[in-house]
Design a protein around this nucleic acid. Structure first.
Lengths: 202, 202
DNA sequence: CAGGACATGTAAAATGTTACATGATTCT
DNA sequence: AGAATCATGTAACATTTTACATGTCCTG
């Protein structure tokens, strides 16, 4: 239930409408916790129903301004202080790397190269953000900057890794030789699997 | 629908049962794409129904041995070659960092320190894996090693970042001075938000 | 013969994605 | 007046998580 806490966290800095929050997600939080418009509005209603938020003035176009309540702040602090974050990592990019043996060496190289390019692009984008933002002393600025730095390091790491991986494959290619199997073959090499089971990676 | 492709990818290396696959997930794929037992069994049935898999012999305890079909291999290659991976990043750890201003400087430091420790622990664990695994020349070994290297670099990056973040906060603490707001205050400082809106981070 | 590992499944609930639907205000 | 932006919502579907349920085989 991180979405609700993300919303509470943003509203802890001051009142906002669903539309505002949605834009904040798109432009900053989306990098660590993406959410759709649909989700934001639904969750705001749930939070209001649970008394974690209060709707203040209704503005121009049916705009609702949400404020956090004391119960909301309590819940936010409880989440931050008393619960452990779970670190579920999910990377489709990396998942595919596992299976790159199914597509021939050329395509595998292309894949890694593109992954590296994406990371490099992301790095540039984040550098641009760093310059563009007016960093204040408010909570979101101070801690947001820490998060941005994480993003910068992460992107750089990914770019470097992709480069390394390409070099690694090149080495291996020279040693083991030959254009790797385009779509099957190695699956049936002796020792590749025993008793029909995979050898776990650890 | 990455889970189905993860299963196809594993089965492309050779036949296995749901139980085998489940263990592979727990021990290796879980690091890039976690899945539960429940999900694995359900998806295997769906894949079989769709003719991407075939059930071979039924073993000892109702064990079903799944093999990939030609349609399954085609689907796997299609996924790898013709579709773009989406890079949805979700990090609860990082999400919390954004909101660390809500819990006082001491707790914020503790949080970052613990995050660093977790990363350091993960790094050690992966190093142990690296030593323990017998790296062969089969697909999963070759590309699995690339993924492991990614994990090592990622963990190191996180550990270093946490260290840096702690130092950064220490500096800022000396400059801006004072024990930060334990739970509200700054929210109402002038300029922290305009027109009830948050300043986007970019 | 008991306990652990092997082995497969279903159901319910929570969460996330995609698409659709509607209307008001502001700017050019 | 028309387009862009502001603004909120619902419905259907897919995915993920958690819990429950059941039975077999092997080892000490």
């Amino acid at each position: 239930m991180s979405l609700r806490h993300a919303l509470l966290g943003l509203l802890a800095e001051g009142p906002a409408s669903g539309y505002d929050l949605m834009r904040t997600f798109d432009t900053s939080l989306a990098n660590v916790w993406p959410a759709t418009q649909s989700q934001v509005y639904t969750e705001l209603n749930r939070l209001t129903e649970g008394k974690y938020l209060r709707v203040g003035s209704e503005g121009p176009r049916g705009r609702k301004e949400y404020s956090i309540t004391e119960a909301g702040r309590a819940e936010l602090r409880h989440w931050l202080a008393d619960t452990e974050p779970r670190h579920t990592v999910r990377s489709e990019t990396l998942l595919r790397v596992f299976f790159l043996g199914n597509v021939g060496a050329g395509q595998a190289r292309d894949y890694l190269a593109r992954a590296g390019e994406r990371a490099a692009g992301q790095l540039e984008r984040l550098r641009a953000v760093e310059k563009a933002v007016s960093w204040d002393d408010d909570n979101l600025s101070v801690y947001g900057r820490l998060v941005l730095e994480y993003g910068l390091r992460f992107a750089a790491m990914q770019r470097d890794w992709a480069e390394w991986a390409l070099a690694e494959l090149a080495t291996r290619g020279r040693v083991a030789g030959g254009e790797p199997e385009a779509h099957q073959a190695a699956a049936h090499r002796a020792g590749a699997h025993r008793e029909g089971r995979h050898r776990p990676v650890r």
